[in-house]
């Protein structure tokens, strides 16, 4: 299958979604959907690692082609990874079916 897709789930601090989407778009993602959410971080972990986890979060879902996934994830991690202020957690899931706008072939 040459049109396999992957779902990128990205959970970041509130207000960093533009950063993530800009990074993803540069690597070829067409769009994403943002959900507002609230984190429930572990207080002990926060004390142990000396970081604060703000409860206001944004969750971003991006569907990309399998070949583009690594580039997009890398770009997002550089912009809003755990070491940055965005404190992003990023993971990907395989998508088995897909309905929606088909990618416009690049010339």
């Amino acid at each position: 299958m040459d049109n396999e897709k992957e779902l990128i789930v990205c959970i970041i601090n509130n207000g960093f979604s533009d950063l993530v989407m800009d990074a993803a778009r540069k690597e070829g993602a067409k769009g994403g959907t943002i959900f507002h959410a609230r984190g429930t971080g572990n207080l002990e972990m926060e004390k142990f690692f000396g970081i604060s986890i703000s409860p206001e979060k944004e969750m971003i879902l991006i569907v990309v082609a399998k070949e583009e996934r690594d580039h997009v994830v890398n770009a997002i991690y550089k912009e809003a990874g755990l070491d940055t202020k965005g404190q992003g957690i990023i993971f990907t899931l395989p998508v088995s079916d897909f309905v929606g706008p088909q990618p416009i072939p690049r010339h």
Partner: peptide, 9 residues
């Protein structure tokens, strides 16, 4: 009425 749908096992 455009949209996008995908599934995960």
């Amino acid at each position: 009425s455009k949209g996008i749908a995908f599934s995960v096992d």
